[in-house]
Design a protein around this nucleic acid. Structure first.
Lengths: 223, 223
DNA sequence: GAGGCTGTCTACAACCCTGTCAACAGCGAG
DNA sequence: CTCGCTGTTGACAGGGTTGTAGACAGCCTC
């Protein structure tokens, strides 16, 4: 014990110093920060925690991102871009089919829950009351849905666009809410079982398909 | 100026000291804390901010609630109780009618947005991945919906309960998501106008009613 | 009117977080 | 091999937060 105290002031072994490329370091730091973003929100990201998780000291994080805010911005941007890419991929995959709608919803749900992107979106929405970035491109998707319906049922009505928009909004709201509290809601309503979320998505898909089949290309407004 | 400096160490005018009853003080503090809860989440509640908003010093807050955590618990409990009461009232009001469903959704939306209770629920859900308190009593409501359907269409099928549960879950998810990011979603999808949320709720009501009319008391499972 | 219960305050202590600074140390270029 | 760029670090400063301690002061009771 006394022997270990040989160095009175220089203390512990200097610890081997790894040196990554700037890009590697940034990526590793952002990965850790993203996990914190999903778990605790943008306000919950702590430089010290991020640094510890990566295995560096916190000034290193500041060196790469300038400030805490810089880190948060970078992480949020990257997460939203990834989300957009995943959702787009899921939509492209399934939009060809007809009532592959269930598969489409499954794909979106997977994109939202894979790395907690749905939670991240919700954190961001809670943080800023005003609409901010149109990250989900809902408008494009509503127009795509509308086009599909017209192609299938003919352009019987013009007011239909809003109907398609509402369908997209409904699907998006539901998938987002479920990525955050799906388990709460299903369990709370008394629906049990590990496959409950999938059954719910399938049910929702049937509901949407039935709505389209019932209304065709015409608006349901006046009905 | 020099005359005002008469007291070298006791400084500013002692400031008139109001004395409330413990109950009044607790209520005022919880009101302020609730506003912060809605705006910044449970983790965003700062004793100093709460105290400043009420017009007291932060040790007063600690005196009444013991600790920050005590305050948060009290505020969360009170908010959830209020939400439950409001939602229950909205449901009781409208459940008598038939397709007063739109009015029912309006009532729930109002209960969720009036004092930000929907945002509060979302903050809490984000904070705890595991299902926690069954604050919305979704189970009861699903059973009520199921009972109504059976009363109206007869007990044609037994598997119907899950259908009703899903309807309630869908409505709840959507209303919750919209209380947080309804504006984002509608605006993002291209739906404009101050009455867009109300139109969306009316549309959702028609969708749900149509579903029930189409499926009656029998399950939509095998269809 | 006197006394006590308790709501309230000022001042202080301990902790945590972000950001700065000067110095150290890989790793590639010459 | 030497030099320099830059990723990396420990130490420190400044601000902010929760929580404590002791004194002050309304308001109710006797």
């Amino acid at each position: 014990m006394a022997g270990a105290m040989a160095r009175p002031k220089k203390a512990p072994p200097p610890a081997p110093r790894r040196r990554r490329t700037a890009e590697e370091a940034r990526a590793a730091i952002m990965d850790a920060a993203e996990r914190q973003l999903v778990a605790a929100g943008p306000g919950g990201i702590r430089l010290q925690d991020v640094a510890r998780e990566v295995g560096v000291s916190h000034p290193t994080v500041l060196h790469h991102f300038g400030s805490r805010e810089g880190l948060v911005d970078a992480v949020v941007s990257r997460a939203l871009d990834a989300l957009h890419a995943d959702v787009t991929a899921a939509l492209a995959d399934a939009s060809a089919g007809e009532d592959k709608v269930a598969a489409l919803l499954d794909g979106v749900a997977a994109a939202l829950s894979a790395r907690g992107q749905g939670r991240a979106m919700m954190w961001l929405a809670l943080g800023s009351p005003e609409p901010q970035r149109d990250d989900l491109r809902l408008r494009e998707q509503a127009e795509a849905v509308d086009a599909l319906r017209r192609a299938r049922f003919g352009a019987t009505g013009e007011a239909t666009l809003e109907d398609s928009q509402f369908m997209v909004v409904l699907a998006a709201s539901t998938m987002l809410a479920h990525s955050v509290m799906g388990a709460h809601l299903l369990h709370g309503a008394g629906v049990r079982g590990a496959k409950a979320p999938a059954r719910f998505r399938a049910w929702l898909a049937r509901l949407l398909v039935a709505h389209v089949e019932r209304c065709g290309g015409a608006t349901g407004q006046g009905a």
